[in-house]
Amino acid sequence: MSTSEAEWVLLKKVQQMDFVVVELTLYTDTHPNDEEARKQWRDAIKEAARVRRQYETIYGPLSLTSVPSKQAIEVGWQWNSPPWPWQR
């Protein structure tokens, strides 16, 4: 697996976990009293953050709210470097 392929796979994992959060957020917007769903939503956010950290440690931050890892800085990561999402 090439680096860019490995990155694509890990990014997809981030996308999957973030998508679960998107779905549960909309659900809890209209189901504020579904305690089980609210718990799942909190767990999903934690899980998404965990997978995101995994990605960002290697490839650098996906947003300006993440702290750049030493590893990412060392390989020359910059916010401004390509590829941008539509270029991948």
Binding site: Q16, F19, V20, E23
Partner: peptide
């Protein structure tokens, strides 16, 4: 994985 693929949880 299936949720993202199908477009819904």
């Amino acid at each position: 994985a299936e949720a993202l693929k199908q477009g819904s949880l």
